[in-house]
Design a protein around this nucleic acid. Structure first.
Lengths: 144, 144
DNA sequence: CTAAACCTTCCACCACGGTGGAAGGTCAAG
DNA sequence: CTTGACCTTCCACCGTGGTGGAAGGTTTAG
């Protein structure tokens, strides 16, 4: 089985070597084998692991939570019923978060729409950056 | 119009006075009026403002983002087209996040289900906390 | 008048999730 | 054999979103 050095793993999983060592220190990743030189040697599937971590984490899960989930996924002596409960709770929390997120998105869209209406009425939206929208003749200057 | 001292506002909005001062320093909340004694005096609707902040923030928006949104909601000289774009982008980001969240939830549920199946097969789920599930005769010791 | 409960500012510290850099060992190319 | 890219450890620091506490002024209750 081909093994990866930390830099190779980092490259393939699009994280920094630093972050990988950090995850190891945080017990999210198991400590890998070491070569005779002391270099970390990762199995190829560590890439998937890292990608999963990144995805879960990018969605608002803390590393601590990811750690527990990872432990289950790996199946080797999972941290017990406690973690099972934790995951159930997490799933419920996700449901709540989802519906809240939907509401927030609606509020944002409403704000945007309201602003659109104000512009349509010709209000001075942002005097020092762009002039009020005049009736007929769009084609505002394209300033960001 | 009745005004609130910071502690009263904090109580009604369920945040700490510290946090309120912090939001002010972070320019998320506008600096309120001051009494002759130097005390901050908030209008009653500051409560709604704080609740909105807490909700948005509790959904993964940063204070910086909340700040911009708040600026729009208040309508007084919103920070221009820039913010409009930011909110559009944010709405799209929310959509992505929503679908990712749905996927993550599914993965978690699958992990839970898989674990359930392992338990059903009688695997030693967590030897040092609860004994393997024996066929017939549930009623495991209730240790968390 | 006094004590408690507020309020003010300011500075330190916390957890989280890393990044940067120093000091040193190792490996591959020229 | 040197150079440079990599690897190792360790310690410091960053931004985010606050909290804690000191030092001092105010307001309120007894």
């Amino acid at each position: 089985m081909k093994t990866l050095k930390i830099g190779e793993l980092a490259g393939q999983a699009a994280v920094s070597p630093k972050a990988i060592r950090f995850y190891e220190a945080a017990r999210v990743l198991p400590p890998p084998a070491r070569g005779a030189n002391g270099y970390r040697l990762y199995p190829a599937d560590a890439v998937d692991m890292l990608r999963f971590i990144k995805q879960a984490q990018g969605l608002g899960l803390t590393l601590a939570e990811v750690k527990d989930i990872v432990a289950i996924r790996q199946g080797g002596r999972p941290p017990c019923r406690h973690v099972y409960r934790l995951l159930q709770e997490k799933a419920r929390e996700l449901d709540r978060k989802l519906s809240d997120l939907v509401m927030l998105r609606r509020r944002i869209r409403e704000s945007l729409a309201a602003w659109g209406r104000r512009r349509a009425r010709g209000a001075a939206v942002c005097p020092h950056i762009e002039a009020p929208v005049r009736p007929s003749r769009r084609r505002a200057s394209r300033r960001g």
